[in-house]
Design a protein around this nucleic acid. Structure first.
Ligand SMILES: [Zn+2]
Ligand SMILES: [Zn+2]
Ligand SMILES: [Zn+2]
Ligand SMILES: [Zn+2]
Lengths: 134, 134
DNA sequence: AAATTAATGTTATAAAGTTACCTTGTTAGC
DNA sequence: GCTAACAAGGTAACTTTATAACATTAATTT
C-alpha cells in the first residue's frame, strides 16, 4: 500500500474508497451510490468524481468489461494491472506480471505505438468454479 | 477471412457486418442503428442481436473499453485478439501474439484459473500521433 | 405438415455516464 | 485578515448504452 495510509482524501473520496475496500468484488457506480446515500451522497456525479480522482491517485482501478471499480492490490506497480475474473462466482484478482508487460511493450514498439494505458481482463472460471477433470 | 465468404448471414446480421466492414474504426451500436435506419432497422435490439450472433460466429469483436464493435482482422485465430488503440486519432489495430497469449495462460494456470475470454486493449498513441523524439 | 429452432419487430425500461451551472471550501500571496 | 485562485462539492437535467418482455415470422428438421 506504500503511503496510501497517508493519502489525504476528501470526504467523498474517502467514502468511496472505504466502500470499495470493504467490498469483496468490484462495485458499480450506482451500487456505490446506493450504499453511500446513507452517508449523504445523492447524485451519480459525486461517485464518478470521486472515482476519477482515486484512479488518478492510483489507488483504484476501473474494470472496463464490468463497468465496475476496485481498489488496487497494493503492489505499488507501474506496469499494467492484470485482472482475472471468474464469470461464475464473480471473484476478481489483480496480478502483476512482467512477462506479459514485456509482450505489451514489444507489440507496441513493433508498430511504433506508445502504450499508455494497457487493459488486460481475463474472463473465465476460477479453480473453485472450474469443472474438476479428475 | 477463411470461409467468412461462405457465411450465411441473416438480413440484419449482413447489414451490421457490412456496415462494420466499411467503417475505418470500431462503431458503436447506436451509430450502427443510425446508419441502418435507411435500410429499415428501427430499434437498438436489432443491432445488439445481430452483433451478438456475429461475435458468436467469430467475425466481429467487441471493444470493451470503447463500447464499440469491429470486424475481425481475418487472422482465423483461436487465441485472444489484442487491440492497440490510439486515443488521439482513434485508429485501432488487431494483433495476434503467441507470446502474450502464453503469458495469459501461465498467469491463469498458476492460480488454477481457466481463461475463456481474455480481453487485451492497449490504449496509447500510434506512430503518427506520438510526439516525435528527434 | 407438425415440431423445433433461429431470427424479427416493437415498446418500454433499466443501467451507466455526462453536461451545465452554481456554491462552498482551501490554499497562497498580499 | 483579505482576496484571488483553485479544488471540491451539490443538484438537476439529460445523453448514451444496453436489456426485458412479449408477440410474430421465417427457416430447418422430423
Ligand atoms: Zn493495482
Ligand atoms: Zn469462481
Ligand atoms: Zn479477430
Ligand atoms: Zn493516432
Amino acid at each position: 500500500m506504500r503511503d496510501k495510509q497517508h493519502l489525504k482524501l476528501s470526504k467523498n473520496q474517502a467514502l468511496v474508497y472505504e466502500a470499495l475496500s470493504q467490498a469483496s468484488k468490484p462495485v458499480g457506480a450506482y451500487d456505490l451510490l446506493d450504499q453511500l446515500k446513507a452517508h449523504g451522497l445523492k447524485a451519480p456525479l459525486q461517485i464518478y468524481r470521486a472515482l476519477e480522482s482515486l484512479i488518478e491517485l492510483k489507488v483504484v482501478h476501473r474494470l472496463e468489461s464490468l463497468n465496475a471499480w476496485t481498489t488496487c492490490c497494493d503492489a505499488d506497480h507501474d506496469s499494467a494491472p492484470i485482472f482475472v475474473i471468474c464469470d461464475d462466482c464473480g471473484d476478481v484478482k489483480e496480478h502483476i506480471d512482467t512477462g506479459l508487460n514485456r509482450s505489451i511493450e514489444k507489440i507496441s514498439k513493433r508498430s511504433g505505438f506508445t502504450a499508455e494505458r494497457p487493459i488486460v481482463e481475463i474472463h473465465g472460471r476460477c479453480g473453485d468454479c472450474s469443472p474438476k477433470t479428475n
